[in-house]
Design a protein around this nucleic acid. Structure first.
Lengths: 356, 356
DNA sequence: CATTAGCACTCCATTGCAGGGAGTGCTAAT
DNA sequence: ATTAGCACTCCCTGCAATGGAGTGCTAATG
């Protein structure tokens, strides 16, 4: 779709007017406030054209125009110029992160807070895919007969635990032996490869070692499977959604909250943004396959360590969002988080030893 | 406050009518549908009396009456007869819990789901106070120089972790030694006493052992402090709140969500229910000191293992709730959860070893 | 030939008003 | 003490009128 310069300007005017006010934008407003030196009649003609192209729509005859999703898409893809986030904002966000020691989970929670606060929408953080991080430590704790708590720690400091039921009652010292063994052979292996490694080990050891160790391997295999499967996602700042006029209707809001509850669908939606070639990914209402979210849109960006993408973060809000503000916030936050994950020393402010 | 039999009946009628419909209840309705064989005029007189006593109120002249918080309180305390939850409901709740293996955290999450689903309000679960559980296992993992991840596991299977900054760089094998040492001396000690125990140990060991071990103690002390301080609370099922007509006004809902964000205040509110002498505690709107929650009320009940109370669970919703249904659900859920914590074998259904 | 002024028209939101309904308080009768 | 009856109050609903915002079309213009 190719638009003349002027048509682009009109589209831009309608989009930004609509984003600002939430109301349909009329021809008069466009001609007066957006510096196109043409009369409202001309604008009307152009608008009619844009409507024919499916970029604008009228809620009813004799109302102004609002952009369709298609129009918004065009606007985002080829009209909107994304600038860097202002230094002032950058500083504020940095400040929101700086304080106290933080482990990675706290860091991620804080990230979703930052997103929701600075975008005034709901913030979303998809937790690091475990498969992308490296093995650090595993520990087995015998909670009671037949119940073993397996704790897995990744190099990034994520702690994941699973309860495993086991037919036999394994005493704690055997478990300790297992974990020592596993910590040795698995050290720093990417979690995605751990499974293979374990399988290979199982082959080899069968003959050599005591059967105990194959138990260790089986235990960890089970726990790992569990850990790799569930991806966690945090959504924060629902309250901001409420202050959007589009949610004056409670029923709509209820449906959205309901959609949020099904994390797995949200995860699948965000997975799209794992594409490393794009820095920012925007999914507009009808482009998502979650029908409850048809009036919402998601701005997201991957974060990671160096080359590897760990997860995705972003913002969800009504289609009518201030993208020109939100996109820079999201990308900046993503890069900041990535940076923290790279050199965590910067995150955790020096904490004095302070025994009381 | 002492009411005549008949006045009680009228109060009851107004309360239950209001709870059912959400609308002011008129004298006619009361005289017709609640089996008092008196005319509406008599009811009007009684209602006027009850209003003088501050138990009822009129939204405006020529409207019916609704109960005040004081009236509701009286109703709850001396009129409402709490029955046991019907067997059918009990079975449904049991069923909602039964499935798959569960560690304690999953169990608690599921509890809040159950509460919200069966009460059609927001479910709240205050996580077990660590001080009430026993030490099971501690583990130190050197994430990188100067950063040690301390993982604490309680006997109930709760996993708590904290990042500790340390001046020196302690190698992992020393850390392993520490944890073995601590796991030995602290085994099964109630967490509330661990701190004292550590301090005592520090005294004694100073002379005997290598200085390394005092480091171990200091490390664990710090981590423990952190762990004991933060009490977690889960709120689930916000969506149910939205379907109450009192939240047609979005602004109100927004304020409530905002209040939910400040977990510490919620925790303080629920702490009131830790009173072991009462099985169920109800805090009506104006009785809480959180002004945003003045139109909400909380029905809560402590749960625990045997005699010791671990935490609190309950439901939060508009003052106008169906207490006669919700109270049994809350108490039943509390007793069920307590029972699971007692004999966890019942929770975790037998899981077949199923290596694939 | 693109642009624009002008005009009739449409649709929506707001306002004011009337009528009906639900409920009350009071009074007088039982 | 209870109740029937009545006048009164207040709210909610529907309806019509009004004004405003915006459009599409047509004819005039440079």
């Amino acid at each position: 779709m190719k638009l003349s310069e002027r048509n682009q300007k009109v589209l831009e005017a309608v989009v930004s007017g609509y984003i600002r006010s939430g109301e349909p934008v009329g021809s008069r407003t466009v001609s007066k406030h957006y510096g196109l030196n043409v009369s409202s009649a001309t604008i009307r003609n152009i608008m009619a054209d844009l409507e024919d192209m499916g970029l604008l729509q009228q809620p009813h005859t004799s109302a102004g125009r609002i952009p369709t999703d298609k129009g918004l898409r065009l606007y985002l893809d080829s009209i909107l110029k994304i600038r860097e986030l202002e230094k002032r904002q950058q500083a504020l966000i940095r400040k929101a992160f700086a304080s106290g020691r933080v482990d990675i989970e706290e860091l991620l929670r804080r990230t979703s807070q930052v997103l929701s606060r600075f975008c005034r929408q709901a913030g979303i953080v998809l937790w690091p895919r475990l498969s992308a991080t490296r093995f650090k430590h595993i520990e087995f704790v015998r909670l009671r007969a037949h119940q073993i708590l397996v704790i897995l720690i990744t190099a990034s400091g994520l702690v994941q635990h699973t309860l495993v039921e086991w037919d036999e009652d394994i005493p704690q010292d055997s478990l300790d032996k297992y974990s020592r063994y596993l910590n040795e052979i698995l050290q720093d292996i990417p979690l995605s490869q751990v499974k293979d490694r374990i399988l290979k080990e199982m082959e080899g050891e069968k003959a050599l070692f005591d059967q105990l160790f194959t138990r260790a391997l089986e235990l960890s295999r089970r726990a790992l499977q569990d850990a790799l499967e569930n991806t966690d996602v945090h959504i924060e700042g629902h309250k901001h959604l409420l202050s959007n006029p589009e949610f004056a209707d409670v029923e709509r809001m209820r449906r959205i909250l309901e959609a949020f509850e099904d994390k797995s669908r949200i995860v699948r939606l965000l997975d799209r943004a794992l594409d490393p070639t794009r820095q920012v990914q925007i999914i507009l209402g009808t482009e998502s396959d979650i029908s409850e979210l048809h009036e919402m849109s998601v701005v997201s960006s991957p974060y990671g360590r160096g080359e590897t993408i760990l997860g995705v973060l972003g913002v969800i809000g009504p289609t009518r969002m201030d993208y020109s503000h939100i996109i820079p916030v999201v990308t900046f936050t993503a890069s900041l988080l990535s940076q923290f994950l790279e050199e965590p020393e910067e995150v955790s402010s020096p904490q004095k030893t302070n025994p009381s």
